[in-house]
Nucleic acid binder design. Sequence first.
DNA 1: CATGAATGAGCCTTCATTCAT
DNA 2: TATGAATGAAGGCTCATTCAT
Lengths: 240, 240, 240, 240
Amino acid sequence: MSATTARKERERAAREELILDHAQRLLLRDGYQNLNLDELAEAVEYSKGTLYLHFSNKEDLALSVATRALQERADLFEQANQFTGRTRERIRAVGVACGEFARQHPAYFHVELMLKSASFWDRASEERKHLHSLQASRTFLSVNNIVQEAFRVGDISKVGTRPEEVTFGLVSVSMGSHIAAASRELAVACALADPFAVALKNGDIFCDGIGWKPLFADWDYAATDQRIRQELFPQATWLH
Amino acid sequence: MSATTARKERERAAREELILDHAQRLLLRDGYQNLNLDELAEAVEYSKGTLYLHFSNKEDLALSVATRALQERADLFEQANQFTGRTRERIRAVGVACGEFARQHPAYFHVELMLKSASFWDRASEERKHLHSLQASRTFLSVNNIVQEAFRVGDISKVGTRPEEVTFGLVSVSMGSHIAAASRELAVACALADPFAVALKNGDIFCDGIGWKPLFADWDYAATDQRIRQELFPQATWLH
Amino acid sequence: MSATTARKERERAAREELILDHAQRLLLRDGYQNLNLDELAEAVEYSKGTLYLHFSNKEDLALSVATRALQERADLFEQANQFTGRTRERIRAVGVACGEFARQHPAYFHVELMLKSASFWDRASEERKHLHSLQASRTFLSVNNIVQEAFRVGDISKVGTRPEEVTFGLVSVSMGSHIAAASRELAVACALADPFAVALKNGDIFCDGIGWKPLFADWDYAATDQRIRQELFPQATWLH
Amino acid sequence: MSATTARKERERAAREELILDHAQRLLLRDGYQNLNLDELAEAVEYSKGTLYLHFSNKEDLALSVATRALQERADLFEQANQFTGRTRERIRAVGVACGEFARQHPAYFHVELMLKSASFWDRASEERKHLHSLQASRTFLSVNNIVQEAFRVGDISKVGTRPEEVTFGLVSVSMGSHIAAASRELAVACALADPFAVALKNGDIFCDGIGWKPLFADWDYAATDQRIRQELFPQATWLH
DNA sequence: CATGAATGAGCCTTCATTCAT
DNA sequence: TATGAATGAAGGCTCATTCAT
């Protein structure tokens, strides 16, 4: 690849990022159906035709937005996987990463749910669809690996339960908490102070429920949180 | 009211149900934005104008679909509330009711999430909006009342936790589980046998996690399930 | 005709008047195209079907409104024709009648202009169309008769001008003045105090212009006005 | 601006004129409410979407039609204002211009009246509304300036009458005559030979009526007409 | 005769996608 | 390669008219 070609490729990638940035903003504001390509083109200061040089259609574009967010999520999860300590500490690191992600992508789950619409996948390109499932796998495996390790080392000893069931439970609690927390009405009715902290707390309860050692009461998780903060998210100021 | 008027009223109500049935089907298949009133009219075999005799606009119609489902859910929850026994048995009855509901409304949570779309509530009639929040309250209170009772009688003794936080957790686990279970990919990856049973199991784990007595291991919940089945859902054949 | 039939006929006529009253009100408020038969039926407290027992379609209804107003106008004009005195006094009586009519039918000319829409006459019933032109003739002749008389007795002696041209001029001045006066912008720009008086004044100027005797300056028209008021509109309190 | 941009701009303006031409034709034939954008798009041989690249909605389009005609009218009036001579000669030039305009826009006044419909102005763009009132002012001032000059130089000496009242009268006579002349029935009843000449004649009568010197009988207005014809409308063949 | 529920053609407007330049 | 003018199908909503009761 010549130097010129390389530069052009870099410029192209940068522009794609720019498009995705604005598309994400508009998607979160308006939802998929109300995403207007005229407005997007205006926002990125490129023509509508140029958008189509990057994405073969609107579905493709939206899927890319979701995939990019999912990739970020997977990156954070894998980063959290580097955390050393007991398995429950490590799954906690993933929980913190998940919260951090939710803080940066306030309505990610709504975008994700948008993708469930059956008619959606018909028109997206195969390549984009593949990329998406790749990131989904990375996310899933990050959690599942820790759970399997927990079973292996005896931190979880629940008989009659497969690791995947625990992983599924963790995913459910996390996703459910973030979606429920995003509901103004429910958050008000329950007088939630910090909608992000609540997901972590629900995760704790779930882990205690399956007897994942060390139990919340038996360990200084405040100290663990401090380590997570220092080692994984040193730049973040939001973790208390 | 004359006999004729009464009959007409009945026919009107029946037709409204018919419209809602088909609207629900199309909503689940296509999502709100792709719901096509022409197609709906065709499906119910009434004219488009007739749809507008029942609902003042598309938003009103979709909201009615969600409200009707939510009402059914609230009915089941209140019915479950009649169940006698320990508080954890009673919350289990609600969990069973929730599973029953999910079985009958496979994608209810997606419809519910659709309503979160900001622009949605602008055009629906005040009456329909009121009806919806009414049913939402009934659902919430059904759970919250049991949780409060559990705190009162000492079945839950977790310090530093308010009843509403527990309720919020239960809602999160339940909703998260049903949404996650509806995701084909995840269900396959986790090799879930029964997607509805998993929500109940996650609920058990969560309740154990907060130390809601009697814990799962300390009680014959199979017997409780049998009572629930007999007393609340005698007609249902799906409870194992 | 039996007594019962007669009573029914009276009731029918009364209802038709009621319909026309409300239709006129709605026509002036909304214009023809925005006239809504649902709203009209609601207003008259009869069903939409009943409207169609009186009028074969919407055009027919609107034409009837216009015809009824025109008939009132023709009645007033013929009444004014009874006024005794010089021909110019008599045409003044018609002018006063015209102003009185305009006061009672603030936007009559707009309704009349509405009827000019070419496509309008296609669907109205022949009978209604005939009735309309009948009233139009009565109006025209009321004016034209006086003008012819003025030529005959020498009150107008303009050579090279036919009576019909004068009549046409009078109609133009009157209609133009009332329409122009109904235009807020123009009325404000010209600082018009009394939009109805201005039509009369323009008529005076026009009559003076053709030398219709006695000229405005040569006669006590204030006294004439008083007579018109007493003899033709004794009940009206608005004539100054 | 590059040559290409300039050419595109020209083409755009030309197409806008084309749209307005057909829109005007359809408006006069069908009225505003019956103006069908499908038919218009068909007529101009551009797509409906293209219409919306020029006009933001139907109201905007119709207003533009009216404004364009009004602008032409204002241009003619200001051109007539250049005419030199006695004030009454100059107002006659405006009258001739008005007749010329009416000849080219047979039903202009109906379009103008259409704009009076209350609901009309709600949706048109501010810019178009501003343009319209601008042209309306130009038209009004063209007449009013001459009238004021006539008062100033003593050509009109009618006491107790403000210039604006005279202007209002002239507008009324002119508008009324053109509207009345457009009415087939009335024109036939009055056996009008030339419906455009009659407006001029009514204007003469009105001017004589207020004593605007030189009176019609005291001046060779045929010669004035000839000068108007030569100086203002040399290309027109219709002035007799 | 009177009703009013039901109809369905019709219309304005939007916006994803294309393609000539 | 990048553009943006042009497209035209699609969809929500209205309302005059009909007709079974």
